[in-house]
Design a protein around this nucleic acid. Structure first.
Length: 397
DNA sequence: TGTCCACTGGAAGGGAGGGCTT
DNA sequence: AAGCCCTCCCTTCCAGTGGACA
């Protein structure tokens, strides 16, 4: 069935990006200054997930580097995903190490004072005569965690450089974060803006057809499969990544059942699988303390308590910790863990007021209980207590 | 109308674990 | 070895609060 499965993966950057010519041109026009030895403007790129922001940026960057080589102009294109590289220190180190070939000379991932890293970075960049384009993908994550000091320093770095030129491209799927920026940073980052609108269902179909032609052998797809994938993904704010995932997973499921063709049925199955896989993976990689909090919530809900409160979850949590011989964290800390679980979409916590009876969070699971418990059971610490029932236990005393 | 509950969520800081330089 | 630095996880302290109840 498959000819080349790789082209369906999110990491794959195709040679052609359908329906993104306008954004490619816009970005290229801004960055072409680098080839003339000028400093390109900083750019702010905004668009929802799976609208091609990263792919377009990488594509333009690659082209720019290639043309730069032909014209004998050095162009450095540094891509940083701020979800992983999320502190000022780490960003600076990452950029600086890009210019340090000697492995022994590299800046360690911790240990130096930040301003020393900054000095070294300036020195190293200035040794190269060329344009340096720094892409900060998911820049909102960086600002959220580390504030805008990094951006301020980076936007001012050109003042301290004699030869090299630096420009910054910030990519975000969240517009609100710019409100928290220092006005100077905001205006400097937003010199140019490129907007990526969501794909509609028809555009998604084009993208899927383009990839499917390479990915599958002839006649592997029933006619309705691509429109369905496109329609489902269009509902998810036009997410092309989701559309491709649906197609790939559907194909994998069909293949596993020995089918020669992919039908609608497998697309629907794929949709369920993708969501469940996401939850399973998130839960599996949770720290133990968060798992305990999660288990406390599940058990509370199974006991039939309506509108679970922080206090109730905390009580159960404490019993679980004792049963599992784990340290008991403070309620303050558990509050934060609950908020984190909320942000991960595993549960919902809304602040409500019960008047005379105080103010608290009302907590509700938003993923299936049994599947989640099965994942928790994989953890050796949790395994003995997953079947624990707080109420029964209490009755013994 | 005021009280007062059961928290929320900010601020500050400790300390362990990574590393650096001198 | 001593003296720093950065990050993560956590504790302590506490002012603030929406609304049911007296």
């Amino acid at each position: 069935m498959f000819r080349n499965k790789e082209v369906l993966r999110p990491s794959y950057t195709p040679e052609e990006l359908p329906h993104r010519q306008a954004q490619i041109n816009q970005l290229a026009t801004i960055l072409v200054a680098a080839l003339r030895g000028e400093t390109p403007s900083n750019v702010f790129i905004y668009g929802k997930t799976g609208t091609g922001k990263t792919a377009v940026t990488r594509f333009v960057g690659k082209e720019l580097q290639r043309t730069g080589q032909e014209k004998d102009r050095a162009v450095f294109f540094i891509y940083i995903n701020c979800e992983l590289v999320d502190t000022q220190y780490r960003v600076l180190t990452h950029i600086a190490n890009h210019f340090i070939e000697d492995w022994n000379d590299r800046i360690p991932f911790t240990g130096w004072p930040t301003d020393e890293v900054y000095d070294k970075l300036k020195k190293k960049i200035d040794e190269k005569d060329g344009a340096c384009i720094i892409v900060l993908d998911e820049i909102d994550k960086l600002v959220f965690k580390a504030g805008d000091d990094v951006l301020y320093n980076l936007s001012r770095i050109n003042d301290d450089l004699k030869r090299a030129k630096v420009s910054v491209i910030g990519i975000s799927n969240d517009l609100k974060f710019t409100e928290f920026l220092d006005p100077r940073v905001k205006s400097s980052l937003g010199e140019e803006e490129v907007i990526f609108p969501p794909y509609d269902a028809v555009q998604l179909q084009d993208i899927l057809r383009q990839r499917a032609a390479v990915a599958f052998k002839e006649d592997s797809l029933e006619a309705s499969v691509i429109p369905l994938c496109a329609a489902l993904a269009a509902q998810e704010h036009g997410d092309a990544r989701r559309a491709l995932d649906l197609l790939r997973v559907a194909a994998e499921l069909a293949e596993r059942e020995g089918q020669k063709t992919i039908s609608e049925k497998y697309v629907r199955k794929a949709q369920n699988k993708i969501e469940l896989d996401r939850v399973t993976e998130v839960v599996r990689t949770l720290p133990t303390q968060s798992k305990l909090v999660l288990l406390a919530t599940i058990l509370g809900e199974e006991d039939g308590t309506k509108g679970l409160t922080t206090g109730e979850v905390y009580d159960t949590y404490r019993e679980l910790c004792q049963a599992a011989h784990m340290d008991v964290l403070t309620q303050r800390r558990v509050t934060d863990l609950i908020s984190e679980l909320d942000m991960l979409g595993i549960l919902q916590a809304r602040v409500i007021s019960k008047g005379r009876y105080g103010r608290t969070k009302e907590i509700q699971m938003s993923v299936p209980l049994d599947e989640t418990k099965a994942v928790l059971r994989e953890d050796p610490v949790l395994e003995p207590i997953v079947g624990f029932s707080p109420k029964k236990q209490a009755r013994l005393f």
